[in-house]
Structures are given as structure tokens and as C-alpha cells.
Simulated assay, not measured.
Amino acid sequence: MASLHISNVRKAYGATEILKNINIDVGDGDFLVLVGPSGCGKSTLLSLIAGLDTISDGEIRIDSDRVNDLHPSERDIAMVFQSYALYPNMTIGQNISFGLEMRKVGKAEREKAVSDAAKLLQIDHLINRRPGQLSGGQRQRVAMGRALVRNPKIFLFDEPLSNLDAKLRVDMRTEIKKLHQRLGATIVYVTHDQIEAMTLATRIAVMKGGVIQQFGTPAEIYSAPANTFVATFMGSPSMNLIPAMLSAEGGKLMLAVGQGSAAARFELPPQSAAVASYAGKPVIAGLRPEAIGVEGGRTPDALREVEVKMLVMEPTGPDVFAVMELGGVEVAARLGADVPHSPGERCKLRVDLSKLVLFDAQTEERIA
């Protein structure tokens, strides 16, 4: 496997800039997920790594080797496409071994590589069938097998699960996760699905408008989003963003969450100097749905009681998604399945302020 280093990479088509100063370092064995809305530049960046397109400025290195000007065949990468791209007239075994055959790999070595990959992906019983006889999930495994036999330095996945139904996506997600754990492979994976990003990645790059909004571990992206875009894009339901006002009273920081006379006021647990400097200023309070209605917490001194009005309740089985009015603003919460409340009811819930994230009201950047 190998490391990947992307330094100050730009891509423009004429006057239209698609990627702007992209900087990413992927360690040996990392699983990097590029995630963002359609048109954010993630697939373009994958094409630049693969060598399917040329960069306008900057540098891409695999290990210590600069690959900007190398042909795709010289970069030692393997790519798995959204469309599977299998040859319908070939058997599964022939599809998997085709790339090795083109590289003049010996027959015995080819057969062993195909057998090993097929067993690893649990498709060895399908080896003599043709793609038209397989399900979508099986075809995607074949496409992965074709990449595996190459034993490349880096695997590139371009939205490989988007053509599958919901259950198959979950199953294949698990298989890809297992594959990464078994092989310790370096993987770059493109998706617009934030659930895929959170479950698969060791590192995530959240993109918007050709710019990386945040690069970090899934836990960092989820718990400490860099700005309100990341906060709302990552997480389902997304983070609640509530207008708020900070004030200093008697040496304590107070937060008024919501609007006008209905705003709920909390005494904050100890905060950073950066947060304290916003006393007297409007901010945006970010709370994940699971931080509202908690029964207990690791930091009990950060729990605060608040009155809410239940508006809509959606049971999902293990829990209930609730929309409620807090401080005169609608927010979403994830509550326990046995929650005793009903729509229209006013009740008191506890909010875990250790999970609170505050953003600058003007720039929408997180206040560190």
C-alpha cells in the first residue's frame, strides 16, 4: 500500500475553477472518503488522482513519487466505477483476470489471484457465470475483485454503491469495511452519502464548491464541525442550528437560545477564551438531535432542563425522531423508543451542553 499527498491542487476549465487549492495527506492504509453535494468537485479530484484528467496547478504524490505527468497505467492504482464496467460476453473469472492478462501475467499466477480474490469476496461459486446472471451487489463484488487482483498501491472508488437498493447498499458497505480491515489497503472513496462517509472512513474530506470545508476523522467532523455547512451536511437528522445570544453575568457565561421572549436561557459549563470573547454578541448554537432529551450523560454538570412543546413524533423502532419547539424555534431530537410524550404536549427535557457547538453568526465558522 502507499500514502497519497495532494498539495495545492487546482483544476480549471477556462475561466471556471472547479477545484481550489486542495491539500490532503492520506497515510498508508487510510480510508479517505471525499463527500459533498453534487458538483462540489469530488469526482473531479478522483479523476486527477487516477490520471484521467490533468491538473491545472499543484502536485500529486504517491509515496514520494510525483505522478502529475504519469499515464494512469503507470500510477499503480485500481479504480472501481459506479457502473461496474464489466464485459458482458466474459465469465466472471475472465472479467476479474482481464487486466492481468493484458499485463502478460502468467496463467498460473492469474488463476491463483482470481481464486484468492473470489474467495475473499465470496463470489468463488459464481466464477463461471456471466454478468447478466448476477445481482447488482454481486456485479459490484466482481468489479472490486478485478481491482483486488491488481494488488495496487491505492484503490479508488467512484460512488460504487449508488446503483444499489437501500438494503444492498448497507450490505456492501459492510463488505467494503471488512475488505479494508483485512487488507489494510489505502482507499480513496467518493460519495454524496454522509452515512457511507461516517461508517467507512478513517479520514473524511467534506467538499463544497471546489473547496475542502473540513478534513479530519469521522469523530472530529461530527462532533466539532468547522462551519455550519459541515454541521448540517454531516449527520442524519442534521445538527440543529439555533439563533442565540451570549452574555456574561456575575462571572458566568449565559446563553439565550431561540427568539424573543420565548428564548431559553442556560448557564454554560466552562468555555474557551474564544467563546468567552463573544459575550454580548449573537451566535449560532449547534446541537445534535441526540443532545436533546438525554436521560443521563458523562458530564452531568453540563445537563440543563428546558421546556419544549412536542410537534411531530416519528417512531423508528429503536428510537423516536421528534420535532419540537425549543425557545420558539423548531428543532429535531432523537429520543428513546419509550418516550412518554405526545404531539401537542408541553414537557421538560434535558439538554447536554457538553455537546454544544457555537458558530460565529456572521462567518458561520465554529468558535474554537
Rank of each mutant, 00 (worst) to 15 (best):
G145L: 08
I212G: 13
F155K: 01
G328K: 11
T232E: 13
L46N: 00
G39Q: 09
F321K: 14
G27P: 06
L126V: 04
G39A: 00
M144W: 00
D69T: 07
L161H: 04
S73W: 14
S135I: 07
S135G: 02
N89L: 11
V35L: 15
A118V: 10
M1L: 15
R366D: 12
G14D: 06
A2W: 07
A108R: 13
V35H: 02
F229A: 09
V26W: 02
A12E: 02
E59Q: 07
Q362P: 12
S162Y: 06
A143D: 09
L353W: 06
D76R: 10
A118Q: 14
M198T: 05
A118N: 08
K153F: 05
L358I: 10
A285R: 02
V339Q: 13
H71C: 12
E325I: 00
A256Y: 09
E267P: 05
D53P: 06
S43W: 01
A273L: 09
I123Y: 01
D30L: 02
D57S: 10
T299W: 08
R350W: 00
Y13V: 14
M207S: 00
G99W: 00
G132K: 13
L303H: 02
D301Q: 01
D30W: 00
V331R: 02
V339M: 13
M234C: 14
F31M: 09
A361V: 12
R169H: 02
A276I: 12
S238Y: 14
P300G: 06
E159R: 02
L349W: 08
K20G: 04
G344E: 03
V188K: 09
R75W: 06
N21L: 08
Q213F: 13
I176H: 03
T16K: 13
F98D: 05
Q181G: 05
G51R: 07
I77D: 00
L200G: 01
K281E: 03
V283E: 14
S97G: 15
T363I: 07
M324S: 05
G280M: 07
R298M: 07
G145H: 08
L32V: 11
F157L: 13
K11H: 01
G145V: 10
V351P: 08
D171P: 10
P88N: 06
Y84L: 07
D25F: 00
E196F: 11
L358V: 04
V320S: 05
